[in-house]
Every structure is written in C-alpha cells, then in structure tokens.
C-alpha cells in the first residue's frame, strides 16, 4: 500500500514538473521566471497572450489526452486480461479520425472552429453504437475484439476513400498531417470541449478497479465474487469510447501510449489491474507531456508530429513486450 502511495506521489510530481516544463518550451525564447509571471499575473502584453492562449491549453491538453490514453489502455488490458490490448482496439479512434477527415474534406473546418473535434466525436459515437449492435451487450470478449477490428478496418477504408477522391491537394495534406497526431496550435476552445468528456470518462472508468481485480480469476469466479459482468462491460466500453474519442478529436491519432504505459507501470503496482488504472492515467499524462516537449526540442522549426514520435519510441517498447511475452510462454 505504501509503495503504491509513493508511486502515485512520484507520478503526480512528474506530471506537475512536465506540465511546468511544457509551459516553458516554445519558439519564443523567454526566461522561465518571466514566462511564469506573465502566465500568473498577466498583463495585456503579447507574452501573457502566448502563455495563456497557446502554451497553457497545449499543456492542459497534453495531460488530458495522455491521461485518457493511459487509463483506457489499462482498462482494456484489465478487461481483456491481455497485456497486448490497446484502447484503439474497439475501433473508436479509427472512427473518430474518419469523422475528422470528413469534416476537413467537406470544408466544415473552415466554416467554424470546432467542426473538426465535433465531427470526430460524432464518428466515435457512431462506432460505439455499431460496436454494441455487432457484438451485442452480452457478447464475449472475442466477439468484441472482432467487431472492433471490423469497425477499424471499415473506418480505415472510408478514410482512404475520402483521401483518394479528394480533389483538393491541400485538404489531403491537411488530413494526412492531422492524422499523425499533434497538440500544436490548439486553443482553449479545445480544452473546454474536451474537459467534460474526459471527466465523464474518468467517472466511468476509475470505479471499475475492483471488478477488474476480480477478473484476474476469470469471468466465472469474478461473477461469483459479486462483479456484475454485463454492467462492467457496458461501463468500460462507454468510458473508453468517450475518452479515446475525445482524445482523438482534439489531438488526432496518438498511438502506443495506451499500450506501453500500462506495461511500464504494471510491475510497480504489483500487477493489480485495479491499481493500474489511476497509475496509468498519470503515467500517460507524463508520457504525452514529455513527448510533446520533445517534439519542440528535437526539431524546433520543423513541426515534428507528436504521434510520429510516440510511435517511434513506442513501437520498439512494444516489440520488447512481445519478446518478453514469448519468453514467458504467454
């Protein structure tokens, strides 16, 4: 218990430090103290504007997106009892991306600022309805995974269709870059749009800790220990859909966070799936904040995409995980 407490304190401190660091990194070279005083006390000068309207929403979104992906990864792995599960498995991120792509292609994004995230959320919502229709509320985890794969494939195919039919090369480029995932140039509009959904997701997923713990013994034993499996499944999928849909809507596709973060933290929480939820939320926030700082430091002038970096770092970690799973005979 105390070890878990220390871990949570350490992760919280890490997130806080990275949050401040994220506020201090940017193309405008300003000393940290000046930046922070401009943020906190403020004036009508350009520095306060940069801090409050550009860097603060970016750092806040980093926390929200990272926490969503980490938490959802831990929830999916705990539910499916498989360390290779990831939040995109149920097809929500692909469908959210399709929604966004349609918004860009049709020019809706030019019409009003929030068209893209709203269209992405609509895409996510459609995919969840489709998922429940395909897998059924009582469907086993295998039907759920297969339905998710089918929905992802379908969303991917439609995305490719929209891209290939695009008469406008600028829209096509915008789509490709958006899909790589980024937190650059987001505003407080994005924060206020995402926050209620992220909070709803937290409220749905965090209380599932005990049920996920009992699932360690298998579905039958978990049910006999008083876990309501049907309710657990519905709550979990709704929570993951809300959070991943929102994260994709505001940041595009940021891969590997939900896969790698629970894996890195598992042994630190004694492999308990319930304790892994909150720890992975903090760990995910730290990872996305760190990656978003890194993209600004590695290639300052070049707009390195966040999702590209997380994949470059995450894929080798994933290979290591596959290798270790094979070695353990899993």
């Amino acid at each position: 218990m105390t070890r878990y407490l220390w871990l949570m304190i350490g992760l919280t401190a890490g997130v806080a430090l990275l949050f401040v660091a994220s506020l201090l990194v940017g193309p405008a070279k300003i000393s940290p103290l000046v930046s922070l005083s401009a943020l906190i006390w403020g004036d009508s000068g350009p520095l306060t504007l940069v801090m409050r309207e550009i860097r603060l929403p970016r750092a806040l979104l980093g926390i929200m997106v990272g926490a969503s992906l980490g938490l959802c990864g831990a929830a999916m792995q705990g539910y499916l009892r498989n360390p290779l599960a990831e939040p995109g498995l149920i097809g929500v991120s692909g469908s959210a991306a399709l929604g966004a792509v349609i918004a860009i292609q049709t020019g809706l994004t030019a019409a009003f600022a929030l068209a893209l995230p709203l269209a992405a959320l609509a895409g996510a919502a459609v995919s969840v309805v489709l998922l429940f229709a395909l897998a059924g509320p009582r469907g086993g985890s295998l039907t759920l995974i297969l339905a998710g794969i089918a929905i992802s494939a379908l969303a991917g195919a439609f995305t490719a269709l929209v891209l290939s039919l695009s008469p406008n090369p600028f829209a096509a480029t915008e789509i490709v870059f958006w899909m790589m995932g980024s937190l650059a140039d987001r505003s407080f509009l994005h924060v206020t749009l995402a926050l209620p959904f992220i909070l709803l997701g937290l409220a749905l997923l965090l209380p599932l800790a005990r049920g996920l713990d009992t699932l360690t013994l298998g579905e039958d034993a978990a049910a006999a220990l008083g876990t309501h499996l049907l309710r657990l499944r519905l709550t979990l999928i709704s929570g993951v859909a809300v959070m991943v849909g929102t994260a994709t809507a505001v940041a595009g596709a940021v891969g590997f966070v939900g896969l790698v973060v629970p894996h890195l933290l598992r042994s630190a929480v004694g492999a308990r799936p319930g304790k892994l939820l909150a720890a992975s939320a903090l760990g995910g926030a730290a990872m996305v904040l760190a990656a978003d700082i890194a993209v600004r430091l590695i290639l300052p002038g070049r707009d390195l995409k966040l999702g590209v970096l997380t994949a470059i770092v995450g894929a080798p970690l994933f290979l290591h995980l596959v290798y270790r799973t094979r070695r353990d005979g899993g």
Binding site: R81, D213, T216, G218, A271, R272
Partner: peptide
Amino acid sequence: WLPQSREIAWPVSVETLVTL
C-alpha cells in the same frame, strides 16, 4: 465458487490473489 479452470491472469503476489 471455485471454478475448475485455474485462471490467474496477471503476475500478482499470492497474498494479493488470496485477498480477492
């Protein structure tokens, strides 16, 4: 209920498992 399938999904400690 002690099912026949002896499932232990995660590498938890014996104490953690029994505490379930």
